[in-house]
Design a protein around this nucleic acid. Structure first.
Length: 572
RNA sequence: CGGGGCGUAGCGCAGCCCGGUAGCGCGCCUGCUUUGGGAGCAGGAUGUCGGAGGUUCAAAUCCUCUCGCCCCGACCA
């Protein structure tokens, strides 16, 4: 296509509203424009990238045996009430009423709608397994949309739902999707890891997230430096420590710690290490208050805590509650003499001796507090975040932490939805059985954003070839008749050879075109000008490496074809 | 929702403290020159100063309310 006929509003300056790399570059390169917080228009160039990613997804989903359909974006409240998610999903579900005052919502995900379809249309195990997918706009009224397409409220998602007659079949379906996802993100040119994940609101038992490793990621991934173990930090298991402190018990001693509340303040004041101190944190879960003991240098993992308590979420208690429960302001809580609340502790506490801990009295801590002698713990559990250097829970290597962008997640749902919505089929014995489900999502726009996070330099985007908006950016750096004529011919020839070409035919100066081309990030730039044509050559620049070479005009098409095939074998 | 910040021309910003003519750079339009890494000269257009109310002879500027947006935290593809 010709740049003179496309809206590609590149920006010379960074827009003030964008901080992250992908958000900034998407705005600057003219891929997207904001309409409202977390809601964007995809401009022609941005849409081409989206369509490329969708196409890769479509091919791999089809190859994995899934079938495409399209569900509505508006869905009636009744379906959501069947699974209780009308209440459970909270404010993220954007609700509205139609003219007859009937409740509707914009679909944030489609388990209810697809399960409804399934129970109406599928009767027999002979029809299974089934896997339906769609690529569609979702709406989640996020608390805080941010980073452009990374976390929008309205976003394009591929969601798939598998139905099997039993758990074993569901696992096969799950594995097929896992494999398809691996191929999809590989084809998109991303460096990613599949990690064990928490199941959150969607529910179910087994889940993996596909994380694109990037500094700007919102999630933290813990992975073994030697083994295959990788998990979202929310879920990463921590083994109980092997070593036990064998020191002899010293007498419990109160010590004045005026105004020293935090771990840093107390340890500095007492000249001890954070690992010799235990924090007692009070959490609220519904009406209940729970004390959690955690080593000074560790962090509580609230997802683990909530799972242990079998609740959906826990929050730190407010200062009033702390005062009420412990009799002291926050910063001085401890298990010694603490009554009326359950006391849970991380495994690491078990082996500690002579610890420093809050005394439930303002400006006071205890030294040499000891388990059993001075306080008791109802339950020890894995309640902390993994840290770099922790042994891998699967025994091989130690954990490393990295930031990741979650571009996809797969869930083995089991019968959570089929049970609530009574989605049954007849098995080979003529018995009614609940369908066993899985669900599988990919954030399409987020994948594009993640690709930019991973592929850019100071000049702009460097698209991986398979998802680039165009393959070749043709730049005419002269307005001469000869240059224009050669460019027109190459433009046609390249397209005839199946190459997607963006021809910058604008009357701008060379510098403007070069800079825009580097910003937009099409993999190959072909520069046509009088200088080169005098020698019968054009120049080709590889955006990623910056390497430039001169190619005889007549050899260009074959050369580009070869480069393209190397860059994406699947187009051969 | 809590904390922080910002709304002035298409974009990036100054002006606000200390009330009185709305400004700069880029972009845009016209003409001439230029034409291989964001051109030069000349001329030109563009603002409900986010909105409403108030104070004042006078408000971008002070006060009150309100809306929007961004960033940090709790949620998620």
């Amino acid at each position: 296509m010709k740049a003179s006929q496309l809206l590609i509003p590149t920006l010379r300056d960074d827009p003030g509203e964008a901080e992250t790399v992908s958000h900034r570059l998407m705005l600057r390169a003219g891929l997207i424009r904001k309409v409202a917080a977390g809601i964007y228009t995809y401009l022609p160039l941005g849409l081409r990238v989206i369509r490329k990613i969708e196409q890769i997804i479509r091919e791999e989903m089809n190859r994995a045996g899934a079938q495409e359909l399209l569900m509505p974006i508006a869905s009636p409240a009744e379906l959501w009430k069947e699974t209780d998610r009308w209440d459970y999903y909270g404010k993220e579900l954007l609700r509205f009423k139609d003219r007859h005052e009937r409740d509707f919502c914009l679909g944030p995900t489609h388990e209810e709608v697809i399960t409804d379809l399934f129970r109406r249309e599928v009767r027999s195990y002979r029809q299974l397994p089934l896997n339906f997918y769609q690529i569609q706009t979702k709406f989640r009224d996020e608390i805080r949309p941010r980073f452009g397409l990374m976390r929008g409220r309205e976003f394009i998602m591929k969601d798939a739902y598998s139905f099997d007659v039993d758990e074993a079949g569901a696992k096969v379906s799950y594995q097929k999707m896992y494999d398809a996802y691996t191929r999809i993100f590989t084809r998109c040119g991303l460096i990613f890891r599949a990690v064990e994940a928490d199941t959150g609101l969607i529910g179910g038992d087994v889940s993996h997230e596909f994380m694109v490793l990037a500094e700007t990621g919102e999630a933290t991934v813990a992975y073994s430096d030697q083994g295959s173990y990788a998990a979202n930090l929310e879920r990463a298991e921590v083994l109980p420590p092997a070593d036990v402190d064998v020191a002899s018990l010293l007498p419990l001693t109160p010590i004045s710690t005026p105004q020293r509340r935090t771990v840093d303040e107390v340890t500095a004041f007492l000249q001890i290490l954070p690992r010799q101190l235990v924090k007692a944190l009070l959490y609220r879960s519904g009406e209940e208050t729970i004390a959690v003991l955690i080593r000074g240098d560790h962090e509580v993992n609230e997802v683990k805590l909530a799972r242990l308590l079998k609740v959906t979420d826990v929050v730190l208690a407010d200062p009033e509650t702390v005062q009420h429960v412990t009799g002291a302001p926050p910063g001085f809580a401890g298990p010694v003499g603490l009554r009326h609340v359950r006391i849970l502790a991380d495994h690491a506490i078990k082996g500690m001796k002579n610890i420093v801990i809050g005394a439930n009295k303002s400006d006071t801590h205890y030294q040499n507090a000891n388990l059993d002698r001075d306080f008791t713990v109802e339950l020890f559990a894995d309640l902390r975040n993994a840290q770099a250097g922790d042994p891998s829970p699967r025994g091989l290597g130690v954990l490393t932490l990295a930031k990741g962008i979650e571009v996809g997640q797969v869930f083995l749902l089991g019968t959570k939805y089929s049970h609530k919505m009574n989605a049954t089929i007849l098995d080979d014995q003529g018995e009614e059985r609940l369908a066993v489900m899985g669900c599988y999502g990919i954030g399409v726009g987020r994948t594009a954003a993640a690709a930019i996070e991973q592929n850019h330099d100071e000049k702009g985007i460097i698209w991986p070839f398979p998802i680039a908006p165009f393959h070749v950016h043709l730049l005419t750096v002269s307005q001469s008749e000869k240059t224009t004529a050669v460019a027109a011919r190459l433009y046609t020839d390249l397209m005839a050879a199946g190459i997607e070409v963006l021809w910058d035919d604008r009357a701008d100066r060379a510098g403007v075109k070069f800079n825009d081309a580097d910003l937009i990030g099409v993999p190959f730039q072909v520069v046509i000008g009088d200088k080169g044509l005098a020698d019968g050559v054009v120049e080709i620049k590889i955006r990623r490496t910056g390497n430039k070479s001169r190619i005889a005009t007549d050899d260009l098409v074959a050369h580009v074809k070869k480069l393209s095939t190397e860059a994406d074998p699947s187009i051969a």
